[in-house]
Amino acid sequence: MATQMSSAATVPVPTRPAVKTRRSVNARQVIRYGLLYAFLIALSIIFLFPFYSMVIGSMMPKDELFRLYPVLWPPDGPTLTAYRLLLKIDVTTTIQNLERFHILRYIFNSLLLATVAVLLQVFFNTLAGYVFAKRQFPFKNQLFAFILLTMLMPTAINFVPFYILIGRLGWMNTYLPFWIPGAASAFGIFMMRQFIVSTIPDELIDSATIDGASQIMIVTRIVMPIMAGGMVVLGILGFVSVYNEFVLSSLILKDNDIRTVQVALANFKGTSIRAPMYDLMFAGSVMATIPLLLIFFVFQRKIIQGIMSGAIKG
């Protein structure tokens, strides 16, 4: 980026824009944006379709979900029966254990689990990513290569010993296994390093250092504000994957009150010896997805704001 900044400065800026081509440029622009919109809207429909299926599926009686040929719209109109069952609003059911099923509680658990995990992840990974991107110190390359190497091990090998470890630490039925071990991850450090390398000019760090800023001040006052976009990207990715994590959670979180929503919903999935309860599963999934979408929609603006309002120009 350093070079980029200086190269930008060296480009001669003409005082007058090329006025005579303006109209044709605009016409081209209109066509270009028209095509762009057409393409994006077509693609959006494809991307929306499965989500639509889930939403409309959650509003169908099971009879309509179990059809030889799938239906796009319930013939008798949408119904909220599945939601009422899940929220236990004046419905009696014969489904075993459903009276112990508290979907809002589970969603809250998942949100709590993911929020703490993400705050830790974003902070520690940005810290380490900055150091690897901008600092010079002995054994830096070896230390970084080691981080990359740890990514190569297939996670499934870890599984059994990790579980044993969690048991010995007494962390069963707690959220600690989801907060602590993942607080600094190879993926996150690698990503933040690459983001910081291509975003923050060395000059900025150097001048701050000369001004006597401590490293922690540089990270919190300069790097983090500029990297807000990257941190949001990392945060969203981390949030969704922790929120939707299933295998580990299903083994560690067994108590009814602390289960996450994905673990709870898995019971409707059916197994080789039980038919799935698609209606409840779809409705539960819609409810579980709403907080994720809200979070994404709120934070995705940040991704673009980042640098333009940041410290570089200032």
Partner: peptide, 19 residues
């Protein structure tokens, strides 16, 4: 648009497979 292209990522994989 960004939200739409992000939808599959937040949708449960089990449901994606069913669809």
């Amino acid at each position: 648009f960004r939200t739409i292209f992000f939808l599959p990522f937040v949708t449960s994989q089990v449901i994606v497979a069913i669809v």
